[in-house]
Amino acid sequence: MRRLLILSLIISILGLQSCAGQKINLGKVLDGISKSTQGGGLSNDEVISGLKQALQVGINKGADSASKLNGYFLNPIIKIPFPPEVQKVETALRKVGLGGEVDKFVMALNRGAEEAAKEAKPIFINAILSMNFSDAWAILRGEKNAATMYLKRTTSEQLIAAFSPVVEKALQKTQATRYYTDLANSYNRLPFVQKVNPDLKLYATQKAIDGLFILVENEEAKIRENPWARTTDLLKKVFGSI
């Protein structure tokens, strides 16, 4: 019975279809898990703890990937480009031979995001550890990115507050602020252009956070597709192979 319940839970998490083409009834699976507690099977607490561990694995991988050298810069999925609202600045500067300076700025901008990403992991982990029974079951019942959506709802404000000063410091450390100031000044000196002065810190902060959520969402998808690959003793018990 226990093995059948575990198999049903895995099928529900993966969102697979039954032979009749209908989605597995997760409500029946949850009822079965609840009943299994009496017979020595998995308890609700074990299932929830297993989910939390699995999500922590995904978060650790996503945050570590973003915060390493070139985590943003060489990842085309999350690389931060020249601010799109002033794309005309990049185009104009490349035309007048300042493409190298533009490239230095983009690299420095991404280096700033990589530095700031180090602050994300404890915020994400705290959100997972604070997850209640209702939140966890909603994630199990939800879409393939339900955990990522939960993190967006519960951590975005904290991430912005934590990232903003770190991004500002990182942009100064990597000289992105100086590069951008020089680029903006060079552009503003060109004839017949409208002067620009966008909020670089706000742009970098939001793009850094967006990139983190993309990586976490990718890791969540892996967890749902192959949960037994995330090996701790508890995960083996909850998501163990049949």
Rank of each mutant, 00 (worst) to 15 (best):
62 G>W: 11
26 L>Y: 09
240 G>V: 07
204 A>K: 07
82 F>N: 04
166 V>W: 01
121 K>Q: 14
9 L>S: 09
77 I>H: 09
135 D>Q: 02
195 K>E: 13
7 L>Y: 05
180 Y>L: 10
167 V>W: 00
61 K>M: 12
191 P>S: 08
108 A>Y: 03
19 C>K: 00
202 L>G: 11
61 K>F: 12
14 L>P: 00
120 A>F: 07
223 I>R: 01
117 A>D: 10
40 G>C: 10
230 R>Q: 04
80 I>S: 08
194 Q>D: 10
111 R>F: 07
179 Y>H: 06
76 P>R: 01
93 L>F: 04
215 L>A: 06
50 G>I: 09
98 L>Q: 08
117 A>F: 02
140 L>G: 06
115 E>A: 10
165 P>Y: 03
12 S>E: 14
52 K>M: 15
122 P>H: 03
113 A>C: 08
96 V>D: 08
241 S>H: 04
69 L>P: 14
231 T>E: 13
235 L>I: 11
211 G>I: 09
45 D>W: 10
5 L>Y: 11
104 K>A: 12
37 T>A: 14
95 K>E: 13
68 K>W: 13
29 V>D: 10
59 I>W: 13
98 L>Y: 05
94 R>H: 07
25 N>W: 01
82 F>A: 08
43 S>H: 02
102 V>L: 00
44 N>M: 14
110 N>Q: 05
89 V>F: 07
77 I>A: 13
71 G>N: 06
231 T>K: 08
25 N>M: 03
106 V>S: 01
195 K>S: 12
122 P>G: 04
101 E>C: 01
150 Y>M: 02
166 V>P: 10
221 A>Q: 11
103 D>V: 00
69 L>T: 15
97 G>Y: 01
239 F>V: 04
235 L>A: 12
94 R>Y: 07
36 S>T: 06
145 N>W: 03
136 A>G: 04
71 G>V: 06
223 I>L: 14
90 E>S: 04
187 Y>H: 02
121 K>L: 12
59 I>A: 15
18 S>I: 03
90 E>F: 00
81 P>A: 08
8 S>G: 14
162 A>S: 08
169 K>E: 10
79 K>Q: 13
21 G>I: 07
128 I>V: 09
218 N>H: 09
60 N>Q: 14
160 I>P: 09
220 E>M: 05
8 S>F: 13
73 F>M: 09
196 V>K: 04
